[in-house]
């Protein structure tokens, strides 16, 4: 019994490591672990079940992410893994890791503000330009190239940039 449990823990860790490598197809610098989309990995009779949570209701990347997780686990030697979606508690940008926020910034996307309060939802926000760091920025459009991003412009360096919206 003890051996079986230890074995399960080992399997679980290996499965987690494999699943955690999957990247968001729309923001390929972020893994699903960075995003906080990867919620849980469980072992049932040697079979792996991964739980993920959707970022935005209509995020078209979720189907792709599910497929990528299954492929990653099969490549790591796990037969017929399953991926389950959990809705509660609802994902928020607060779950994005600090490493994830830094990777976003380096990629040229301004990371979401730390706390997704309703104040941020209602536009009282100061977003730093990911290129030059200036906070002299303005919003061009609340809705950007994907459902998770808005379009902003830096008034100091004049570069337009994507901002990962607070949710």
């Amino acid at each position: 019994m003890v051996t079986a449990l230890a074995n399960d823990n080992d399997l679980r860790q290996r499965a987690w490591d494999a699943a955690a490598q999957v990247v968001d197809p729309e923001i390929p610098v972020l893994t699903i672990a960075d995003l906080g989309v990867l919620r849980d990995v469980q072992v049932h009779d040697g079979r792996i079940e991964v739980a993920i949570t959707p970022t935005y209701s209509g995020c078209p990347a979720m189907n792709m992410i599910t497929l990528e997780i299954e492929l990653a686990l099969e490549r790591a030697g796990f037969a017929r893994p399953t991926v389950r979606t959990i809705l509660s508690p609802a994902w928020t940008t607060d779950w994005m890791s600090e490493g994830g926020r830094n990777k976003l910034r380096e990629y040229g996307i301004a990371p979401p503000q730390a706390s997704s309060s309703r104040r941020a939802l209602f536009g009282e926000q100061q977003v730093a330009c990911p290129q030059c760091g200036s906070t002299n920025t303005e919003v061009l459009s609340e809705f950007g190239s994907t459902s998770c991003k808005a379009l902003w412009r830096c008034k100091s360096c004049r570069e337009p940039f994507d901002y990962f919206k607070c949710h």
Binding site: S57, L87, S88, L121, E142, F143, K165, H167
Partner: peptide, 21 residues
């Protein structure tokens, strides 16, 4: 109902953007 509450938690943030827009 936990599922409806979870869908609501996601949808209200999206609605807030729609209202503002």
């Amino acid at each position: 109902d936990p599922t409806l509450a979870a869908i609501a938690a996601k949808s209200e943030k999206e609605s807030a953007y729609h209202v503002r827009h």
